[in-house]
């Protein structure tokens, strides 16, 4: 049976610590662009933790929300790519084929979540920082769009391993870097086709919502909303 990878992000657990952001950089060879380019909006964070203030001091709140590629079933980025660089793969992931990308950046405009990042220049790793690069992930050259892949290299490796051992993948054994790093376990990853997987159960949670659900992109990430504290006997 085919896999359909999905994610659940528990906003009630997310503390905004951004461990996921660095983990993603480390796993996926995402370059740092430096102060000059960062000030011109070229910083790349496949996963970001959005922060929104509500109210004003002293009655002020601050919400965190990790946003990464939602791997939409009905992805707006895929239709608009003239070269099929963005397309849906057999596991339901929005794959990005770097070699096909010619850099129209249309996908990034069409993406309502703004989770696509563009290589405005060739990435640089002053020696020996390049020794840290993950050999399982290709380096993207100038003019190419990139985005969260749900750590497709880990998925491929785990599937290959499972096939070789003639067994099914175990729920929870395979994690993208962000979920693996998350200190509060706010990020849960798994197979939505398996109704008993943790992610499939969380996707059915009454706290579950989808980001910009009304736009109809059918994202595969479920956000579990913050629960207000109540007196335990209020039930």
């Amino acid at each position: 049976m085919a896999y359909r990878w999905g994610m659940a992000v528990d906003i009630d657990k997310c503390t905004g610590c951004e461990a996921c952001v660095t983990a993603c950089h480390a796993e996926n060879n995402i370059p740092t662009v430096g102060a000059g380019q960062a000030s011109r909006g070229r910083a790349m964070h496949w996963i970001r933790v959005e922060r929104y203030y509500e109210g004003s001091f002293p009655d002020v709140r601050l919400k965190f929300r990790p946003v990464l590629c939602q791997q939409c079933d009905n992805a707006p980025c895929e239709a608009v790519c003239p070269t099929y660089a963005a397309h849906q793969n057999e596991d339901g992931l929005n794959a990005q084929v770097y070699n096909r990308c010619i850099g129209t950046r249309y996908c990034a405009n069409a993406c309502t979540y703004n989770v696509r990042f563009f290589n405005f220049f060739n990435p640089e790793w002053p020696k020996p920082l390049h020794l840290q690069l993950n050999p399982d992930v290709s380096i993207r050259e100038v003019g190419v769009m990139e985005k969260c892949t749900f750590c497709v290299q880990r998925i491929k490796a785990a599937k290959t391993e499972a096939t070789a051992a003639q067994r099914e993948l175990v729920d929870g054994a395979l994690q993208p870097a962000c979920a693996q790093a998350c200190p509060t376990t706010a990020i849960i990853f798994g197979d939505l086709n398996d109704p008993e997987s943790r992610v499939a159960r969380l996707a059915r949670s009454p706290r579950g919502t989808k980001l910009l659900e009304d736009l109809g992109a059918e994202p595969k990430i479920t956000y579990l909303q913050k629960q207000p504290w109540h007196e335990p006997d209020a039930y």
């Binding site: 003239p82 850099g103 129209t104």
Partner: peptide, 29 residues
């Protein structure tokens, strides 16, 4: 405006080793 203008010819519908045609769903095509 392309990121990789040297590959602009990939918008042409021509039989190529890549074995894909332009995506006719794309308004850019």
């Amino acid at each position: 405006h392309l990121g990789r203008p040297w590959l602009a010819f990939w918008l042409f519908p021509y039989p190529s080793a890549r074995e894909i045609w332009p995506n006719f769903r794309s308004p850019l095509a």
